[in-house]
Design a binder for these strands. Structure first.
Lengths: 343, 343
DNA sequence: TTACCACATGGTATCGTTACCATAACATGT
DNA sequence: ACATGTTATGGTAACGATACCATGTGGTAA
């Protein structure tokens, strides 16, 4: 039922002034232990709850953080960004409003307006996949931090995955297992940071092990499983075929498994495989489970929130652009390639 | 920058009273077109935004809806429930606060308390998978609706998937393609509604086609890919092997693909497969794409929100328990089994 | 003794908006 | 002419919590 008690009610009940009640509620000093107890009892007995609207009205702070995204709330990929933000926010007594905007600017602007109307203290903008974003101008009216995306002019703080280290770790893992011919089905289009970074990491690892980069076993992973299947098959039929595959994402690795098995080859005995993204449902239901690289969604969310708390004061200094590590998650899809080690 | 304009400021600027401004803002009658224009101009020029805290303080309504869940925000499975709620809420000018609670009662109670402190108008409680839930007592202090879960005593409105029709559709699809031996790896434990319902649906469809229920090709799909792989293999080695599989979820179907292919069998030419859940990343990256049954997450979210809007007045009448349809999503993993049709 | 400070306490103005009341102009019906 | 109703308008008291100010106690240093 509607319980509309105010601090006046408990003040009366406890036989004190409203100010004293407020002091107890906010842990302010100058309240005798005796009265504090009385107030707490009264609160308990009447089962009173503070009205946060009134509270925030007085202080001009709303305690609201906006979480804006192109479509992250809709998709499973980056759900952990939300979790990261949420947990950090909860600890800081902030409330997160999650909204998604379409991709077009006008819709975004309207949603930002919605947040501004509610006087959010800050906005976190997250993208579903690591990419450059363009934001509506009105977002600058409130502190904003980006997660899993960035602006061309770097005018806002931003956290993105360190794709290079991810690509490096995946490749190095295969090299250390003795593989020297490692096919790479990179994500695409090639201009996006994931594709660029992972390729650099791949090359770095190869160079470290004195393996020449061979363009003929580099392909692209697109959003069409059939096409990826064909690409994988083609590489397996290469005159000098790879002994290992590095797939740009776990979904493609999954399709790759099919192609490899269809050729009568075993994983990892004949072919080793590494993926990227650590999509848990895919990774743990492949046989054998897929070794992959984790995208730091949770960490980006946490970083973004904490950045927002700081952001308040500092202003025109260069906004930080954070690269967050991508750890390797090892499972059973990589095996030693002893013949090569022997050479 | 901090822009602390109030309706007083625009009242002054427009040369009218604050009441008139408020009337314009809320589309109330009794404002001349002339003054309405002046006010709108002033709002535009000063780029004023309403303070929702003050607004809600006055009206006692906070416009807040709490979305509570055991772990849905953490997992990709039921993300669409959120989307359903969110979109309905946005249209109704409500703000959704998403929070997750652990499984234990004390944590839940604390999180509900957090929501109550903020005077939410209602709570939607969602579960990650369809199951019975127990809720902390304090949740009854505010209208609450359940999505993808239910209470033993049915004391709150609830929307759950119609598992029976789902199981029926999946099985019927295989029967219509001519299959008569259909292995079923049901979800488990057997006491959960998903397992019970789908089994009933499976039996119903068999009965309709005069096929006897054969316990020897019924198994369980557990959260261990290896074990499911073994189960699938075992069924394939059955003296009278199935020509089709109905897997209790897409993850298990995915593992099933591996087991079937490892036997040198083709999908769908030799073996037809149907899944359950419509987990998009799995469904569309299997080769061939998996025919499956959709869980109505989005619809449950929408239903729950709309129910909350109604719930306000009605009280002790029996709270509705809604069964929501599970449509079949057809892809390429099912093929005609003409031999059987010929018999 | 006086002056000053730390602690304790409550009254009240205030935050920005809207509900309510009061006022006024003008039209309509009797 | 007068009562009654519709439209327009603005002043002001709430809403509930907190910041600020005022007051009062007791203790300690000068």
């Amino acid at each position: 039922m509607s319980n509309n008690l105010t601090i006046k009610d408990i003040a009366k009940r406890a036989g004190v002034g409203t100010t004293t009640v407020s002091r107890v509620l906010n842990d302010h000093p100058y309240v005798s232990e005796e009265k504090r107890q009385k107030v707490l009892e009264a609160i308990d007995e009447l089962d009173y709850r503070r009205n946060f609207s009134a509270r925030w009205l007085r202080g001009t702070e709303t305690g609201l953080i906006g979480f804006l995204t192109d479509e992250v709330a809709t998709t499973p990929y980056a759900v952990d960004i939300i979790r990261g933000v949420q947990e950090a926010a909860f600890e800081n007594e902030k409330v997160v409003m999650i909204l998604n905007t379409g991709r077009d600017m006008e819709a975004s602007e309207a949603v930002v307006e919605f947040l501004l109307e509610r006087h959010v203290e800050g906005i976190i903008y997250a993208a579903m996949f690591h990419r450059e974003v363009k934001l509506p101008q009105n977002i600058y009216q409130v502190p904003t931090v980006l997660a899993n995306c960035f602006l061309a002019d770097r005018s806002l703080p931003s956290a993105v995955p360190d794709e290079v280290i991810g690509g490096y770790r995946a490749t190095k893992n295969l090299l250390e297992a003795g593989h020297r011919r490692i096919a790479f089905l990179n994500v695409c289009p090639p201009a996006i940071p994931a594709a660029e970074g992972r390729l650099i990491g791949y090359k770095q690892a190869l160079a470290e092990f004195d393996v020449l980069f061979d363009k003929s076993i580099i392909g692209v992973a697109i959003e069409d499983a059939k096409a990826n299947y064909v690409t994988t098959t083609r590489f397996l039929e290469h005159p000098n075929p790879p002994t290992a595959f590095f797939f740009g994402n776990d979904r493609t690795a999954m399709t790759g498994y099919s192609a490899i098995m269809a050729k009568g080859l075993r994983i990892p005995e004949d072919i080793s495989v590494v993926g990227f993204d650590n999509q848990i449902d895919i990774v743990s239901n492949l046989i054998p489970r897929l070794t992959t690289v984790q995208l730091p969604h949770y960490e980006m969310g946490q970083w973004a929130f904490n950045q927002l708390l700081l952001h308040d004061d500092e202003d025109d200094i260069m906004p930080p652009q954070e690269l967050i590590d991508c750890p390797l998650i090892e499972h059973e899809s990589v095996a030693e390639k002893t013949e090569y080690l022997a050479t």
